[in-house]
């Protein structure tokens, strides 16, 4: 009898250990492929990277708080969310506190795989499920551009998250559920307005991150993508920006709103969108036209 209990306990132990090992295995942070890592390591064009920077609005989260220079990227702005407070890191080229010592592949791993140079998961408050769709050339050019900004010393405070969100490894499960499974392309064809718009909206522009409802575990609801969602800070809503939501707007109205910040009624885009418009003022007209074209024709459920 005693032997039987012992062996049952032993078996249970083996099952638990196997489950734990499986959990550990499936949540292992994985970076981009060797091919992608090699391709992003080619020299980039900082001028083109500046455009990528402003399409993504990197400075909205990463610029040093309490000052107005968008290129002082010391990080540290507090982002209050239901999961706790995130503090976006220093992405200036400072070799100690920023990304000065990173290789281009490190940036590709962060943007396209949500993995840090130390091999840990990054939290998806950094919208890498969108950035995963970025082209290799855009990542390469962005890397070159970030190196033209001034190095800023000092690190952002550590995130202050509620349990269980504080378990970084668990982000691996989240990625299994929500990380899009797609291959990176080298570049997007700038003459194909539809493709360019889809790319800018869903990739670097990361519009869906605020403009979509999320499910129980905080993943974007694919069938209701871009139909509007609660703002991460809990103050108000980001509106529906699909063809349905924008039915009273012309394509030109959408482009005007993105470039000037004013809607067809003369209302101003407020709240978190004000900072987005500030970034988009630096973006060339054809890119904004492509975004407007894509949104005006987008029906959720389509890719």
């Amino acid at each position: 009898m005693r032997a039987r209990i012992a062996s049952a306990l032993g078996l249970a132990g083996v099952v638990v250990a196997a489950a734990a090992a499986t959990a550990w295995f499936v949540t292992a942070p994985g970076g981009v492929s060797a091919e992608v890592a090699a391709a992003v390591s080619e020299p980039g064009d900082p001028e083109a990277g500046k455009n990528v920077f402003y399409i993504a609005g990197c400075e909205s989260c990463h610029m040093s708080p309490g000052q107005k220079d968008p290129l002082r990227l010391g990080g540290g702005l507090e982002l209050k969310t239901p999961f706790g407070s995130f503090y976006p890191p220093n992405i200036s080229p400072d070799p100690v506190d920023g990304i000065g010592a990173w290789r281009a592949a490190d940036l590709a791993n962060a943007l396209m795989a949500g993995v840090s140079p130390k091999g840990e998961h990054l939290y998806p408050a950094f919208p890498y499920p969108s950035y995963r769709r970025m082209s290799i050339m855009d990542v390469r050019d962005l890397f070159a551009f970030l190196h033209t900004t001034p190095p800023i010393s000092g690190r952002a405070p550590s995130n202050s998250l509620k349990f269980p969100f504080s378990i970084r490894r668990a982000v691996g499960f989240w990625k299994l559920l929500y990380m899009p499974k797609i291959d990176q392309s080298l570049a997007v064809d700038p003459t194909d307005e539809e493709a360019l718009g889809r790319y800018l909206v869903n990739g670097p522009g990361h519009c869906a991150e605020c403009h979509s409802p999320r499910d129980l575990f905080g993943g974007i609801s694919a069938s209701r993508r871009l139909t509007g969602g609660p703002l991460p800070d809990g103050k108000g809503k980001a509106p529906n920006i699909t063809a349905e939501g924008l039915k009273d707007w012309s394509e030109d109205d959408v482009e005007t709103a993105l470039s000037t910040g004013f809607t067809p009624s003369g209302d101003v885009l407020g709240s978190a969108m004000t900072a987005v418009v500030r970034s988009l003022k630096e973006v060339p007209e054809p890119d904004l036209a492509a975004i407007a074209h894509y949104l005006k024709t987008y029906k959720p459920g389509a890719p």
């Binding site: 103050k235 108000g236 509106p239 101003v268 407020g270 709240s271 978190a272 418009v277 500030r278």
Partner: peptide
């Protein structure tokens, strides 16, 4: 002049729908 609009609406307004 128009810059004043966004500066205020960024801080003090949030659309509810």
């Amino acid at each position: 002049v128009l810059k004043n609009c966004g500066a205020c609406h960024e801080k003090y307004e949030a659309k509810r729908s």
